[in-house]
């Protein structure tokens, strides 16, 4: 049993892991629908395989470690779904299985389970898949009904799409990241239910736009292409791997946006959001140290 030793006052809340994960699943629904509409049944299959394998590996791992089975809290399902939404629509099914296993067992389980992982599991799994099987992770298909047409990601050919096309998502890309309208709907749900606060998504997108503009790119296209908005809404905001203090959160998110913009502009990869978020995940404990919460009832001096 874990005792919470926070200073008073205490406010009772019905928020628990299950409530939180349920909210995230609801928020991801528009992205799932958009993904299936644009990329068809294979995208749906990929989501199902990824979620099922993530839950299965979580159960196996907890069983193996002799821990309490906690798959009902929904965190593994969320990890699996977010991972699937980060895969190209025609990715082979075993890619989702390998990614889920890595996310749940290596990134989360080995470090002590939910709450003890230092980087976002789904994001780390995406990095693993990108490093290990690049030819499957960069095989983009354009959404064109039943037939899949291989094409380049908009990040390589930014002028080929209008901002409206980028916003509505009829573009090649990962399953969940193309339709910005759906992502914004999910983000709105998370904000309305107060699952997350505005600091991280806003700071990350602002920083990405600003630095893309400084690096000589179109800031609107930069915000609307690739996985920036999806990452800012659903992955950078992971409670476990982001800092606690609002100011620290904004520095963290701005750093992620900066790294993403630098990688997009100057590095060999077309997309840098993954590495931006992962790097700032690793920096989050440091930021937490710099911005301590002021203890209630004490002056500003005492917090230092």
């Amino acid at each position: 049993m874990k005792l919470n030793l926070n200073p008073a006052p205490h406010v009772h809340s019905r928020q628990d892991t299950r409530w939180l994960m349920g909210n995230v699943l609801i928020a991801l629904l528009p992205c799932c629908v958009a993904g299936v509409v644009y990329f068809g049944v294979p995208a749906l299959m990929l989501m199902a395989v990824s979620m099922a394998s993530a839950v299965l590996f979580e159960a196996l791992w907890q069983k193996l470690c002799g821990r309490k089975l906690l798959i009902a809290d929904g965190s593994a399902a969320v990890t699996g779904l977010i991972l699937a939404l980060n895969l190209p629509p025609r990715a082979p099914w075993w890619l989702a299985v390998m990614g889920s296993a890595f996310a749940v067992v290596i990134v989360k389980g080995l470090f002590g389970g939910l709450g003890d992982n230092f980087i976002n599991p789904a994001m780390a799994a995406r990095a693993l898949l990108l490093a290990s099987w690049p030819k499957f992770m960069t095989a983009w298909t354009a959404p064109s009904g039943l037939d899949a047409v291989t094409s380049a990601t908009p990040l390589m050919t930014p002028a080929a799409w209008t901002p409206l096309e980028l916003f509505l998502g009829r573009i090649p890309g990962c399953i969940g990241e193309t339709c910005k309208l759906a992502i914004l709907a999910g983000l709105a749900w998370l904000l309305i239910t107060r699952t997350i606060k505005w600091h991280i998504p806003v700071a990350m997108m602002a920083s990405l736009c600003l630095f893309s503009w400084i690096f000589g790119k179109d800031p609107v296209a930069a915000a609307l292409s690739g996985g920036a908005l999806f990452g800012a809404a659903f992955m950078a905001t992971d409670y476990v791997t982001c800092p606690v203090h609002p100011a620290a959160q904004m520095i963290y998110a701005a750093g992620a946006g900066l790294v993403a913009a630098v990688i997009r502009s100057y590095a060999g990869y077309p997309e840098g959001v993954t590495y931006g978020i992962l790097l700032m995940n690793a920096a989050a404990p440091l930021l937490d140290k710099c911005f301590r919460r002021r203890v209630y009832g004490h002056g500003r001096e005492a917090a230092k």
Binding site: M98, I106, L110, L128, A131, S132, W133, P134, F136
Partner: peptide
């Protein structure tokens, strides 16, 4: 079999070494 390229990279080596130590 599609090779897990990460295992051949230094980062994968460090992870596998950690798992082996464990």
């Amino acid at each position: 079999y599609e090779p897990l390229l990460l295992a051949a990279l230094p980062a994968g080596g460090l992870m596998l070494l950690g798992i082996a130590m464990g």
